[in-house]
Every structure is written in C-alpha cells, then in structure tokens.
Design a protein around this nucleic acid. Structure first.
Lengths: 68, 68
DNA sequence: AGTGAGTTGGGTAATTAGGGAA
DNA sequence: CCTGTCCTAATTACCCAACTCA
C-alpha cells in the first residue's frame, strides 16, 4: 500500500450496469434521472455508477457490510 | 469494450423463461411469486431470472457443478 | 487529428406487473 | 391445483442524430 487515493470508488459505465441488470443502457439512465441510482458525471456529461451500489441493488453481499 | 466488472449472473427476462418452458410469461411470474423460482428485480419492479437456475430446472446440466 | 465505440437526448412500440374472473 | 386470458398502468426496448470517450 503506497499512495491510496482518499476514497477510490470503482465506477461502472452505463452499458456495464445494463448488462448486470439485463436491461437497456437507456433504462439505467432513467434510473439515474429518477434518483433511484446515484450517478457521477464525467466532465463531458456521461454518467458513471458506483459498483458497490449497483451490486448492493443486485443483492450481491458487499464485502464491507457482510455482517448484515 | 464491455469489461465484466464482477462475477455476474446471466439474467433472463420473463418472456425468455416462458419461451424455454413453453408457458405464458404470467405463469413464470406465478412461479416466482410462489417461491419456486428465485427472481431479481430491476429498479422498476420487473423481474429477471437466473439463467443457471432456469437451465437447472429444465434439466440442462450445469457447467459449474459438472463434477457432481 | 481521426477513428470507432459508447453515451445522451427525445419519441414511439413492446413487455411486464397487478388484480381478478373463467 | 394449475394455467391462459382480459384489463389498466407502469416500466422497458428500439428508433434516430449529435456528442463524448479512449
């Protein structure tokens, strides 16, 4: 462990999230627009999603909260 | 490039499962509601089904349990 | 600087959920 | 007991052109 960025979060692209949920990328965009999924924007306006949040919604137990 | 982020289950839509079983999609929904088939929900409430589980129920030998 | 893939936006069909009755 | 169908409302999928990303 050397220089660990403060809070590095693994981000997923719209198509990656869409693949996980078996939906269209556009649907993921609607979820973000509806506030059901938090999104981070690139400087060009493209959306990125937190992997931890997506996996959580998919029902995949998180490593940090595996005591739940 | 659709990089696979994490181990993801391949999911099937209700109509796809219905086609495989030669039943109405509504029937698949009843199976899920009765707990006979596990389902994952999209953020909009639509159900998705695990391909591995469906194939298992169809009698297709699973690749992961091929040592059985 | 240019190319190809991915994303965004808006608009319109197609699926799905839910309950209920045959 | 199980399934297929009818109904309405909600969600999702595919169409386009323009922009961003790597």
């Amino acid at each position: 462990m050397t220089t660990q960025p403060a809070q590095s979060e693994v981000l997923l692209t719209p198509s990656e999230v869409a693949t996980l949920f078996r939906v269209d990328p556009k649907t993921v965009t609607r979820w973000a627009k509806a506030g059901k999924l938090s999104s981070i924007r690139t400087l060009g306006g493209h959306r990125r999603y937190r992997e931890s949040e997506v996996l959580e919604l998919l029902g995949v137990p998180n490593q940090r909260d595996r005591q739940a």
